[in-house]
Design a protein around this nucleic acid. Structure first.
Lengths: 101, 101
DNA sequence: GTCGAATATACGCCGATGGTTATATACGCG
DNA sequence: CGCGTATATAACCATCGGCGTATATTCGAC
């Protein structure tokens, strides 16, 4: 999946909103504070990335979260995660030592 | 930390290269296959984001990884991770069931 | 101090992208 | 069918970011 899809704040905002529950475009538009077409455009990008799915309901489109592609980001982070947590461990050990003295 | 720093493929590439060991600008330039100023520019962005640190050695600048800011990305992923792993669990259970039959 | 090596900064160009307004499409309703 | 509602697409514009070239800077060697 493409990182730049998540680089856009409005799109991360959308994902965060969909974390709670599916929402229609109108609601997202209002919450994001941008134009309806602007919202639709972002939703298109998210849909192409497989991060959201749509359900039709008359004129409404309900967008819901599809978190699976985020696993790729998670996978990319893996080798780094080892490193920063190692440093945190070292920090903790250091602080523990401080406490003793 | 800003997601768009990682949105740029060349910058992720740099981080991946620094995962192995610190490297000088010239080496990175060659490995990335872009101009030296281009490399320096990306390094500037990474430095501003706290993702790399520099050590001077005569004219050489050795860039080394600083993975800590990536923890923010990891944190952002947290609520989503629950969701996709839940789905994976369900898939696994499903596959297990399939095996039985 | 002068030269070459290594890197950083300045600048200009160009394509990508996000935002808006205008318009098309799809649907339920009367 | 004609209308209002909800959303998508088109067209356009402004900004941003990444690229390269040219130039400045810093440092060691001589």
């Amino acid at each position: 999946m493409r990182f730049d899809v998540l680089a856009e704040p409005a799109r991360r905002r959308i994902l965060d909103l969909l974390l709670e529950r599916p929402r229609a475009v109108g609601e997202l538009t209002e919450l994001l504070g941008l134009s309806q077409p602007g919202t639709s455009k972002h939703l298109r990008v998210l849909r192409d990335a497989g991060l959201v799915a749509v359900r039709k309901d008359a004129q409404r489109r309900w967008y819901e979260l599809r978190p699976e592609p985020l696993a790729e980001i998670d996978a990319w982070l893996t080798p780094y995660r080892r490193l920063w947590s190692r440093r945190l461990d070292a920090l903790e050990r250091h602080l523990d030592t401080m406490e003793d003295t």
